[in-house]
């Protein structure tokens, strides 16, 4: 078992090394840091950024914005899912709105939101808006797939509406909630950062991405992008741990 695990780690490390090598070779071939900086240049840029207190302040502010939007989105999605699953009228009213939100380009929302609210709130709203449809859709799909046999059992034993909700519908929809939460995290990051790039609030990773592009500091652009990717992966792992272990979920 241990040797299989060690082999898997080795293969993963070798794959990472392979792509870093390809990247470095491409950078050498291009020969211009302005167009394609190599991994070493990006690491250097990251090191230079990391020693500045402002880097940490920018990163922390972005994390707070994205997480706030994400949590608000998950909360809204759960409330909407309960409402739409419980009432056909509510479903008919709300579903088209959520589906429209999902189909609308995030840039349209960002531009519109910039007219309505302060710069620093736009990324929060965008993260929230992108999370709601994903989590809602996952919960409602699982709710609709609730085992008919269990519902028939509930009818035979005359379980109250509350018991059906608490002991059948909620556990049935829970895997959908989990997978929705996990897929939505990546979207929250992407939309939150995109909103920061367009809104340029005072402290934000997105604003720094924009300035890097503006001042042609391509290694910085790559470095900020690497920060976003790492944070997204790290927080997704944290959420996975929190949801799966914290709740003690063991599957159906």
């Amino acid at each position: 078992m241990t040797s299989i695990r060690a082999n898997k780690h080795l293969i993963r490390l070798l794959s990472l090394a392979f792509w870093l090598l390809i990247w470095q070779l491409c950078a050498l071939k291009v020969g211009k840091e302005l167009i394609l900086p190599g991994p070493l240049a990006v690491v250097r840029a990251m090191g230079a950024l990391a020693v500045q207190p402002k880097f940490w302040l920018n990163t922390l502010t972005t994390i707070i914005r994205v997480i706030t939007g994400y949590c608000l989105g998950v909360l809204t999605a759960v409330i909407l899912a309960v409402v739409t699953c419980g009432s056909f009228l509510a479903d008919s009213l709300i579903s088209p709105v959520i589906r429209t939100i999902r189909a609308t380009p995030v840039a349209s929302f960002i531009i519109l939101a910039l007219l309505w609210m302060g710069k620093s709130n736009v990324p929060v709203l965008m993260a929230m808006l992108m999370v709601v449809p994903v989590v809602w859709e996952n919960i409602t799909a699982q709710y609709r797939a609730t085992d008919r046999d269990l519902l028939e059992m509930a009818a035979a034993y005359r379980l109250s509406k509350w018991k059906r909700f608490r002991y059948i519908y909620v556990p049935s929809a829970f895997p959908g909630f989990l997978s929705g939460c996990l897929s939505a995290m990546g979207l929250a990051w992407k939309s939150g950062i995109a909103a920061e790039v367009l809104a340029q609030p005072a402290l934000a990773i997105g604003s720094n991405l924009y300035y890097s592009k503006l001042y042609l500091e391509t290694p910085d652009l790559f470095a900020w992008t690497a920060v976003v990717v790492s944070l997204s992966m790290l927080i997704e792992k944290l959420i996975r741990k929190l949801l799966f272990r914290g709740v003690g979920y063991e599957g159906k």
Binding site: D149, L150, E152, M153, A156, Y157, R158, Y167, I168, P171, E250, K252
Partner: peptide
């Protein structure tokens, strides 16, 4: 009015 029904399948809730 009240009848107890034992189904052909066990129909137990796996999360309890």
């Amino acid at each position: 009015e009240k009848i107890s029904f034992m189904f052909q399948e066990d129909r137990l809730l796996p999360w309890l």
